[in-house]
Simulated scan of single mutants.
Amino acid sequence: MLPSSTKLTIFQRGIAQKCAVFCIYLISITVTAFILDWLDKKTFLKIVHEVNKQGSISEQAVNAFTILIESREGIFFLDLILIGVICGVVGLLIIQQFAKLQWSKAVVLPKVIEFKQAMQHIGIHTPGDRIDFVRKQGVPVFIASEPFLELEQYNVPVRLYAFAYDSNLSDANIFNSYIGQQRLCLDAADYEYLLEKYGQKALSAYAARIRDLEETITNLQGAFSVQQTKMNELTEQNQALLAEKVEYQNKEKTLSGREKSLESRENVKLPVRRIFYPLVNRLIAEARPGTKYTRTKIQEEFLRELDSFPELKSAVRDALHTPQKAKNNTPFELAGWAMEEIRLALGEYAQTSPGRDRES
C-alpha cells in the first residue's frame, strides 16, 4: 500500500461514493431483470394468442399458458443476470490465469535482442511506458529459455508471449518478472524496424533535451558569474569594514587609556582646587578698584590659605610635586598649571604685565 493511503480514513477513501456506485449497479441489474421479464411474458403471450387465432391450440390451452406465464416470479431474470455476471467474472479470472501460462511452441530465432536494452535504445526507459508501447504497437514479445548476458544472442530457443499486447489479458507482473530475469526479448528484425521508426524521434527528443540543458547551464553560469562578482564585491567591502573596525577598536583602546590617564590627573588636582576656590573668592572680595595680584602675592596668599586646611597638605604636596621642587625644598610652590588656574580664575585682578605689587 502506498504511504498516502495509510493516512486516509475509510470515508476519505471514498467509501460513500463506492457504495453509491454499487447501489446504482444493483438497481440497474434489477431494473434490467424486470424489463426482460416483462418483455419475455408479453412476447410469449403474444405468440400464444397468434397460435390460438390460427386454430392450432384451444382457448383452454391459451388460458393455461397465460396462467403459467403470469404466475412466474419476476425475480427469475434477476437470478439469470446475477448468475451470468458471476459466471462471467469467474470465467474472466480463469481466462486471466490461463493467459499467464506460456504454452506457445518453442521456435529458434536467428537473432534476438534483450527487451529492456532494446527499449532503452528506442528511447523508452520507464517500465510502465515499455508495457504500454508493446500493447499499443502490437509488438511480438518472446521469452528466452536462458537469461541474456549481452544485448543480442543468436539461434536462441524462445516462446511467444501470446497475450503481451492484450491489455485485458496481459499481466504487468509477467513483464516485470521476465524483464528482471533478463529473458524477455524481441526479434532482431522487429527491433531494427522499431529502432528505425521510433529511435530517430528519441534521438530528436534527446537532442532537444540536451539543448535545453545546455541553455539552462549557460543561464546558470551567467547568473553564477553575476553572483560571484557580487560576492567578490561584498568580500572586499567586508574586508574594508573589518579593517575599519580594527582601526576604531585600536583608537578606542588608545582613547580609553588617555581618558583614564586624564581622569587620574584630574583626581590628583582635586585637593589643590579645594584650596583654590576659597582663596580666589577671598582675593576677589578683598580687591579694590585697580588691584592686580602678582605671582608673588598669589603664592603668599595660597600658603596662608593652605594653613587653614592642614588635613590637605599631604595631598597638596603630592599634587604639586616635581623633582625641581623636591630639590629646592619648595613643595608648595605654585608653578605651571596651578598658578595659571588661579590667575585665570582671578581674571582682571591678576597682573599680566611687570610692575609693583598692589595689595587689596
Rank of each mutant, 00 (worst) to 15 (best):
T216R: 11
A189F: 13
E192G: 11
I210F: 09
T229I: 02
Q237V: 13
D190M: 14
I210V: 12
L241W: 02
T216K: 09
N232K: 11
D187I: 04
Y198G: 01
T218M: 01
L242H: 01
E236D: 11
Q237I: 07
Y193L: 03
T218R: 12
L234G: 00
K230S: 06
E214A: 10
L213S: 14
A208H: 05
E236Y: 08
Y206G: 08
T235H: 14
A223Q: 08
E233M: 06
K197M: 06
T216A: 05
K201S: 15
I217N: 14
N238D: 09
R211S: 10
A240Q: 15
T216E: 11
I210T: 10
F224H: 11
E236T: 06
L213E: 11
E236K: 04
D190W: 03
A202S: 07
D190R: 03
A240C: 12
I210S: 10
L203V: 15
L195E: 02
E236N: 10
E233L: 00
D190A: 13
Q221H: 04
A243T: 06
I210M: 05
A188H: 04
T229E: 06
L241M: 08
R209C: 00
L213C: 03
L186M: 07
S204G: 05
Q227F: 01
N238T: 14
Y206F: 09
I217R: 12
A243W: 03
A223R: 02
A243M: 12
E214C: 01
T218N: 10
K197F: 02
A202I: 11
V226E: 14
A240M: 15
Y191P: 08
K201L: 14
A207D: 01
A188F: 06
Y191A: 10
K201R: 15
K201Y: 15
T229S: 08
Y198T: 12
